[in-house]
């Protein structure tokens, strides 16, 4: 139990499975229950997909995924060097009207918002992007 877990990987869609495995094993090692592990895997997969597709626009680069406990909360930080991309600035999705469209969008961000309790974005002093996802009350008290 315990300790910060960090993965740095190239941004490529075929790396998503590696990212999901990392989140799953890190969250489990911190004692997170399986339902919350699934939520975290989903949220990080969607966030990293957004970084690859909307941030780097499929150009080469890397993303750092770090996972740590803060009390009973689990904190995931995603850091990348893509041009500024703030997913929190997008308007909330209207599911029904989106599903009626021929090319719906916004599903990923909607899933992230449902899977975690808090999502925040900032531009670090060194540049790039930092997205923080917080899931409350999932890490057992020590």
């Amino acid at each position: 139990m315990g300790g910060k877990h960090t993965l740095v990987t190239d941004v490529a869609l075929d790396k998503l499975a590696e990212v999901r495995r990392f989140v799953e094993s890190s969250a489990r090692s911190l004692g997170v229950n399986e339902t919350a592990v699934s939520d975290l895997v989903l949220a990080v997969d969607e966030a990293v997909t957004n970084i690859i597709v909307h941030g780097y626009k499929h150009q080469p680069g890397s993303v750092e995924v770090s996972i740590d406990a803060d009390g009973t909360a689990l904190i995931v930080r995603l850091r990348d060097k893509a041009p500024g991309f703030d997913p929190c600035s997008y308007p909330k999705l209207n599911l029904r009207s989106s599903l009626e469209k021929d090319t719906p969008g916004g599903f990923g961000l909607h899933l992230i918002n449902k899977a975690v309790d808090d999502i925040s974005y900032r531009i670090p002093h060194a540049g790039g992007n930092e997205l923080t996802l917080v899931k409350q009350n999932v890490v057992p008290s020590r």
Partner: peptide, 11 residues
């Protein structure tokens, strides 16, 4: 695993 990309495929 199936996330939003899988559901976009269904759509």
């Amino acid at each position: 695993y199936m996330g939003s990309a899988g559901l976009r495929a269904l759509h």
